[in-house]
Amino acid sequence: MDRPISSGTIMARAFLNHRDGTKGGIAERGITPAFAKRQQAQDSIFYYLTLGFALLVLVILGSIMASLIDGAWPAFATFGLGFITTEIWNPVTEQFGALAPIYGTLVTSAIALLIGVPVSFGIAIFITELCPRGLKRPIGIAIELLAGIPSIIYGIWGLFVFAPFMQLYIQPFLIKGLGPLPLIGSLFKGPPYGIGILTAGIILAIMILPFITSVTRDVFETVPPMLKESAYGLGATTWEVVSRIVLPYSRVGVTGGVMLGLGRALGETMAITFVIGNAHRISNSILAPGTTISASIANEFTEAVGDLYTSALIGLGLILFVITFFVLVLARLMLMRMDKKAGG
């Protein structure tokens, strides 16, 4: 009894015949030993070529890590763990501590995510679920154009336009309205400089907005329309469809978009250098000037005199590399936990 031929087999044969271009095609010709051997050789070449590309990434990553460790070793050998846990940064006395740049990097990135993620989700939901058809493309293009603006333009705009606006209107309002409150009041005390950690965080939020929005919108559009139409047919509201259908279905891609934005925020240099104030100190207030790892390296690397000074700056780069690595690992573990929970 002959086995029935599936539709997939028929389609595969038709495709091979079309691509082959000869009478009868590959699917209709007998596979000779020479042909099979040639195909096996091609598969082997393709396998080892792609394996080489994958290993090349690991080699480059390992080389970067090794060079950073070698360059940062004098600083860590001199200061030990105190290089990470102390705030002082004095090139004159050759006393270096990375705590202030680490604090500034983490706080500005957190502010950027707190502002940028909800706004990005709102834009993506509006474009995919609520926006009129004629406006989807213009709004999408406008959001994506934000990603093409150089970071130094964001920095110049932030220094000459946004920082004065913060100094005259936003920061005095925050100091007067939130400064007297318990618990969170200390975050909004001090003079309104205009520049500072909060200003840098808002600029970062604007910069990561197009990345998170674009990825989130594309992921939302992969949700099968039948699922959403079925939910609407059962009487679900738009919010219920988004929260119970769209977000659970696309949680992995959405998390990837957020991690992409976080990586952008952690490593941003020029825009932050313009608006953060570049002060090597830790303040309770997010209105005060501060610094980040990338801003410190950009500001001081060309002026570094002496091996220890240079090693301290390379040590900052190593710390940023480690922070980024652990952020990616935590994101991966979170995705694995989400997948396991969904499977259970």
Results as ranks from 00 to 15, higher is better:
195 I>A: 06
38 R>Q: 15
117 V>D: 04
176 K>P: 00
78 T>Y: 05
181 L>H: 02
147 A>N: 07
155 G>V: 03
184 I>P: 01
8 G>R: 12
269 T>S: 06
101 P>W: 00
330 L>I: 15
87 E>H: 08
123 I>F: 07
71 G>H: 11
58 L>K: 11
327 V>D: 07
266 L>F: 04
204 L>D: 02
234 L>I: 08
234 L>Y: 08
324 T>V: 13
301 F>L: 13
36 A>C: 08
37 K>Y: 10
243 S>K: 14
63 S>I: 09
137 R>G: 12
174 L>R: 07
264 R>N: 04
278 N>I: 07
55 L>N: 07
242 V>W: 07
120 S>D: 05
235 G>Q: 02
208 I>G: 06
32 T>Q: 07
245 I>H: 10
161 V>C: 03
286 I>V: 11
183 L>E: 10
62 G>H: 03
125 I>N: 14
38 R>G: 15
217 R>Y: 05
38 R>I: 08
171 Q>I: 03
136 K>E: 09
114 L>V: 12
339 D>G: 11
294 S>P: 01
295 A>R: 06
293 I>C: 03
125 I>W: 13
115 I>D: 05
241 V>H: 09
171 Q>R: 04
344 G>M: 15
319 I>F: 07
169 Y>W: 13
124 A>I: 01
83 F>K: 07
136 K>I: 08
199 T>H: 04
105 T>H: 00
28 E>P: 03
133 R>A: 12
183 L>M: 12
331 A>I: 11
178 L>A: 09
168 L>P: 00
71 G>T: 08
303 E>I: 07
193 Y>N: 09
130 L>K: 14
110 A>E: 01
93 T>I: 09
42 Q>W: 13
85 T>W: 10
139 I>Y: 11
236 A>G: 06
58 L>S: 14
152 I>P: 00
132 P>V: 03
263 G>N: 04
77 A>N: 10
295 A>C: 06
180 P>C: 09
191 P>C: 08
44 S>N: 13
61 L>Q: 13
89 W>Y: 05
194 G>S: 05
153 I>H: 05
277 G>Q: 03
81 L>F: 13
249 Y>N: 09
128 T>A: 14
144 E>H: 02
51 L>W: 07
291 T>W: 00
271 A>V: 02
119 V>G: 07
24 G>Y: 00
